[in-house]
Simulated assay, not measured.
Amino acid sequence: MVKVSIIMPNKNNARWLPKSIGSVLSQTYENWELIVVDDHSTDDSVKIIRELMDRDSRIDCICDPKVPFPLTRNLGFEHSSGKYIVFLDSDDWLGKEFLERGVENIRDGYASSFAVWFGGDKYRKFVFERGVFSSLDALKLKFRFRNGNTLLKRSIIEEHMIRFPKERRSEDAYFYSLYLAFSKKISVDDYVGFIVNRVGSSVSLSGISGLLETFKVYEKLFKVLEENEKKELVNVIRNNDFVFSVLIYLDSAPRKYKVQYGIKYFPNIVRFLLTSDFYMKDWALATFVDLFVPVKWLLRGW
């Protein structure tokens, strides 16, 4: 039974840590290690982590690291020893069969279906077709391949020296796009193995500042791809994941920037909406319309 390393960055998420770590403890697959990297939390996070460490020796903590988020994920990876890797945020959680199904079905990577939790009994599920797909399908956003719902191979990360960048916005897009660039086949599951928490989430999109940093991260990504003779993937990412990221940050930007950048990227977004197989196209359409007419909550309905 191979070991899986779960890397969990944390900062002041004491409210959700018991549920997040509890979802790891509840896994049907038992050969795992959980490395929590706590970034100088000022709440009860460290107390909770240490209490759980006393109960289960598979849990470890790197407390008060000398590097900031998102580099804490790299630090956790460097301290891990598993053949397979999961990056899980400390306010999200896993379905109990996630690791077992991932280890059983992984190719170059594994992606489960997922759900977004809005509180109470309000969820929105995204269930993908089960099967083996190309990494290009993932880059075209036919299914989600990001933190939490993916199982990765350590060998691919190490061989190609893939690490999270220092930027705090779109850092996951950078890391997972590079991972997919050096992968071929991804196993996709219809099992909902990951829950994204949207209640009091610690994630801050920061609107226009997040968008400007996103531009920087993608240019860095494109440069690395070109240096590794993966230039053909630049346009794929520019026409899909990049547009998705632009919409994410414009969604929380002030109205004047929505209009300004909505006009600038109008052709890119329209092409994306008309040609992509994006698994959240209804969200993308509502967000696009809202750049010019503030009706997203009416259109989304969730």
Rank of each mutant, 00 (worst) to 15 (best):
I156R: 04
D38Q: 06
W93F: 12
G82N: 08
V224S: 10
V243C: 12
V270A: 05
M8S: 12
F288G: 03
I6R: 09
H79G: 13
S112F: 08
G22C: 08
K19N: 15
G109S: 04
E78F: 03
D241W: 02
N105E: 15
K256S: 09
S81Q: 12
E33V: 02
V196S: 12
R144W: 04
F128D: 08
V116F: 08
E78C: 03
L247Q: 10
V217M: 11
R146D: 15
P68H: 03
E158C: 00
D56M: 11
S57M: 01
V188Y: 14
P165I: 11
L71S: 00
N147F: 09
L152P: 06
S5E: 05
R154H: 04
G120T: 05
D91E: 13
D282I: 11
F126S: 03
E171T: 02
N197S: 00
D43R: 03
A284P: 08
S135H: 10
E229A: 01
R168G: 00
T150R: 11
D64R: 05
G76Q: 02
K223A: 00
N147A: 07
I195N: 05
T28G: 07
L212P: 07
E219H: 14
P267A: 01
F164H: 13
F175Y: 11
V4P: 13
